[in-house]
């Protein structure tokens, strides 16, 4: 079933919407959740929560890209779950590595929990991502949005491991510079 029809089912409040969503996007959502949580049960729970949240938010939303809409929910829920679980820093999965790498971009631990700053940060990060050349953008998002392992990224792009790491490093440096320039300390 195409995405438009699935969204229409949500708007009609048909439970078939969940079934169709699961049939089409369960694997996609699960892969995002599992990359973050590295745990089957937690990942499955996140995916189920995703369906629930999709049910609660459509309507009023009418997502133009259903996959990304669901992926974002899964990602957010999984990150929340990860934080809640507060796993050991080196507890496995890609999350600890991703967090470590993003640490490069942070000048200090001070400040910013306010909504305004969060929103501004989102805008800056979004602008940054959009400004990246195509390949760098894709690699960056695969790593930090989808939390793909370096190995998976290498396979997807047919790059060597060192090339991917090198590219990510440079991109993080750029992000760091931009964040500093924008006053995020």
């Amino acid at each position: 079933m195409d995405d438009k029809s699935i969204v229409e089912l949500y708007w009609q409040r048909s439970e078939q919407a969940i079934t169709e969503t699961a049939a089409k996007y369960e694997k996609y959502c699960y892969s995002i959740a599992h990359s973050i949580l590295n745990n089957n049960e937690d990942a499955e729970e996140s995916v189920n929560d995703t369906y629930n949240e999709a049910w609660d938010t459509i309507p009023p939303h009418r997502p133009s890209i259903l996959s990304t809409f669901l992926g974002k929910i899964t990602r957010r829920l999984s990150i929340d779950k990860f934080r809640h679980r507060n796993a050991a820093k080196r507890g496995g999965g890609e999350m600890p590595l991703v967090l470590d790498e993003l640490q490069d971009c942070i000048a200090s631990d001070k400040n910013i929990e306010q909504e305004y700053e969060k929103k501004r940060l989102s805008e800056v990060v979004n602008a940054f991502v959009i400004s990246l050349p195509e390949i760098e953008q894709k690699v960056f998002l695969c790593r930090y949005w989808y939390m793909d392992s370096i190995e998976v990224i290498c396979k997807q792009f047919e790059f060597s491991e060192s090339k991917v790491k090198s590219m990510l490093y440079r991109t993080r440096e750029k992000l760091r510079d931009m964040l500093v320039k924008e006053g995020f300390q």
């Binding site: 934080r83 971009c105 942070i106 969060k118 940060l121 998002l141 949005w145 992000l175």
Partner: peptide
Amino acid sequence: MTNYAILEALNNVDDECVKNAKTTTIKT
């Protein structure tokens, strides 16, 4: 700012970019 903040900020990245990230153009 924490690294979580950046992770969360990334959640608001443009939908098209996120979608396209998984479509790879393999170099010739």
